[in-house]
């Protein structure tokens, strides 16, 4: 069903910001190809031209080639460009330049062997308190029922729904070992380190059904730690979200 998104190279990019990563990858690869083809042609030419021939001796006189120095300098210069024009700003945007919280959807994703627990704060925008001691099969996050902030929280397992054209701030935590939260089509990847909460963000520009990937070996079920990632219309998302919160609050306060 999802074949159209994926092939033998970069997957389709449905994020607002992913083109920058793609552009950098393309620029670096063009640079690598130019360097390699030039260098490799020289190698092959030298191998053919200077192959052993009868009654011919190698020429050992020291000589100095200037070109390699220029190439070296060129490589160094281009690496500075790659760093300053591409990598620093893009990485800084991904790590530091978070969207404003009042305009973004906040969601917490708690990884465990081998599932993604998705936790939306309800209408109040506050996550309920969690306690590892309260974790049970029916309460995989260990949400404290006594905390009013958690009453309207919506939780799902392995299903992350987000509205299109809305920045999403993800708070990542792990219950057990290191996982890595990756959505290839969003050009987002962030290690999830137990004991700390790491934030990441992304914004989708296209609706569809995609997958969340665990990118860090997390045990024998690592290969099937697959989550579903759905980008919906804003209205569609709102309808689903309202229904879920109503269900929660309806159950708790009849």
């Amino acid at each position: 069903m999802q074949e159209k998104y994926y092939g033998w190279g970069l997957p389709v990019d449905v994020s607002v910001h992913g083109w920058q990563v793609d552009q950098l990858i393309v620029v670096v690869h063009v640079f690598m190809a130019v360097l390699f083809i030039g260098w490799f042609s020289f190698l092959i030419y030298a191998l053919i031209r200077f192959r052993q021939k009868p009654a011919h001796q190698a020429d050992a006189r020291a000589r100095h080639f200037k070109l390699p120095t220029y190439v070296e300098a060129g490589v160094a210069l281009f690496e500075v460009v790659l760093l300053c024009a591409f990598s620093f700003p893009i990485f800084s945007q991904a790590r530091n330049e978070f969207p404003r919280e009042d305009k973004a959807l906040k969601v917490r994703v708690v990884a465990e062997q081998f599932a993604w627990n998705v936790h939306y704060p309800g209408k109040d925008g506050l996550f309920g308190r969690m306690d590892p001691k309260l974790i049970k099969a029916v309460n995989p996050l260990g949400l404290d029922p006594a905390d009013p902030a958690g009453r309207d929280d919506v939780t799902t397992v392995n299903q992350l729904r987000v509205p299109v054209h809305t920045p999403v701030i993800v708070e990542l935590a792990s219950k057990d070992v290191i996982h890595s939260f990756a959505i290839p089509v969003m050009r987002v990847k962030q290690d999830v380190i137990p004991g700390q909460t790491v934030r990441s963000w992304f914004e989708a520009k296209q609706t569809g059904n995609f997958q969340i990937v665990c990118a860090q070996l997390c045990g024998l079920g690592h290969y099937r730690m697959r989550g579903f990632f759905t980008v919906q219309d804003k209205d569609e998302f709102r309808t689903w979200f309202d229904a879920e919160t109503a269900k929660k609050t309806g159950q708790k306060q009849p």
Binding site: Q20, I25, F86, I90, F91, A94, S180, P184, A215
Partner: peptide, 22 residues
């Protein structure tokens, strides 16, 4: 040479976002 060159995108943190652990 190929091994070294392909280290370049991995050494750039921004490209590493997509390529890390792949």
């Amino acid at each position: 040479g190929i091994g070294g060159l392909t280290g370049l995108p991995l050494g750039l943190a921004a490209a590493d976002i997509h390529l890390h652990d792949t």
